Computed example of a mutant assay.
Amino acid sequence: MFEQPPLWFIAIAFLLAIGPLVFFHELGHYWVARWFGVGAEQFSIGFGREIGGWTDKRGTRWKIGWLPLGGYVRFVGDMNPASQPDPAADVPDALRSTAFHLKPWWQRFLIVLAGPMANFLLAIAIFAGFFAVFGMPRTPAIVGQVQPGSVAQSIGLQPGDRIEAVAGQETESFEDMRRIVSLRPGEDVTIVVQRGGAQRSFQARLGEQVISDDFGQEYRIGLLGVLGSQRTLERLPALEIVPAAAGYTVALTRSMIDGLGQIITGQRSTEDLGGPLKMAQIAGQQASLGAFEFFQLIALFSINLGFINLLPVPMLDGGHLVFYAAEGLRRRPVSERAQEWAFRGGLALLMALLIFTTVNDLASFGLFERLGSLIG
């Protein structure tokens, strides 16, 4: 078991992980906005008071805020970093052609969508680099061994069976199968296998196990009880690397959707929700293991950032996308009053979620147990 890295190392690793992700996210907004002729007044990495920056020849202020938990691009005509239009602002005639909210709804839609897409593209680029250098993990989803006393043995799985789907999701590789199963401890699932040229379906309640990682953190995972063949790293032709990386990114995104759905439906505890403090701890841990693990974590964080921003919550990109899609369908903008109330509700929701996940993070660090022992 490894020792936890020091606090200063965790802080630096977190900044090195989250900073580039926020930059790429906002850069996606910025470049598509420039493509459509939208002017940018500010490009900020972090919130709060500026600790450094410069102004380019186009008049955009590039700056770094003291709170490194996000970022924003403030376009011409915006009232705030959330890109709400300023009803009191009188955009000069010389700038009207560059005002974000005077552009067609579909251009605004694409500008907002570009941020999350930039994060997905960054993850694809990182995975493509890994696959090009090391190869792609692609172990066939074929049962090599059935563990005695396991769920797999109880339902009659046999060595040589090819697992084609678990819980309605296709398993093209053993890695796919393991990822799907691990997210479903104690869950009833359908397992589809190919045996002797015929397809068979089995109903099973997956087992569960609490495991510890290299730093002593415990996780509850699902178990089927099968072993595959030896893991292989397959060298891909150059033209297949990017599509394979894209497919890998899609699979990981689907796992995140599964996990969120399980929390919403109560199948998974809300204690599994982590916030900025947990992200910082994980960043420090992975950085201490080496560059390979750290860059892999950056790719996962990037997918997470892109996915979260697509959720239809006001204040997030997904909330803006809902408004612009509604505007396209209704052929008129959503009323300013409705947007104002939606943004207030979205801000309240995000603040509540931040507080909740921070409490979860502190609990996972054992803070409350230590306080209880001191009081007792």
Rank of each mutant, 00 (worst) to 15 (best):
R184W: 11
F109N: 05
L239T: 10
G228N: 02
F365C: 05
F202T: 06
E208R: 11
A283G: 06
V73R: 07
L329D: 11
A123P: 02
E172Q: 14
G306P: 01
L354N: 01
I163E: 07
W66R: 04
M256H: 11
M1L: 14
S154N: 12
P92E: 07
P20F: 12
T270M: 04
I45D: 05
V192C: 07
L110I: 11
V151E: 03
R162K: 15
P237V: 04
M256S: 14
L305W: 09
A165I: 03
L183S: 15
S212P: 04
I64T: 02
N360S: 00
V181D: 01
S335W: 12
G284P: 08
R231E: 15
A342V: 03
V313G: 00
F36A: 04
Q339N: 10
E187G: 06
S373Q: 15
I308C: 00
L350K: 00
G19S: 07
P333N: 09
V166R: 10
S97Q: 14
R231N: 13
L347S: 05
G149I: 09
W105T: 05
Q169N: 12
S288W: 08
A94F: 14
S229L: 13
D272S: 15
E187T: 12
G19V: 06
D213K: 01
H25S: 10
Q84L: 13
F174C: 07
L121C: 07
G28P: 09
L15H: 07
G318E: 02
W35K: 13
E327R: 03
A125V: 12
G28M: 09
G144H: 06
G160T: 08
W106K: 03
F75D: 01
G46Q: 03
P68D: 03
K103N: 08
F356C: 00
G366K: 08
M351L: 14
V334M: 12
A40W: 02
I12T: 13
G290T: 02
G77E: 05
R254E: 14
Q145F: 12
F47H: 00
L95H: 11
F365E: 02
I18T: 01
I163K: 11
T249P: 08
G129N: 07
W62A: 00
G196N: 06
P137N: 04
N309P: 09
E170L: 11
Y219C: 01
L321Q: 10
W341V: 06
Y30K: 06
V334K: 08
R370E: 12
D56T: 01
R331K: 13
E218W: 11
W8P: 01
F301E: 03
I375G: 01
S201G: 03
F301G: 04
G259Q: 06
I163N: 10
R74T: 02
L347C: 01
V133M: 13
T232V: 15
Q158N: 10
G65L: 07
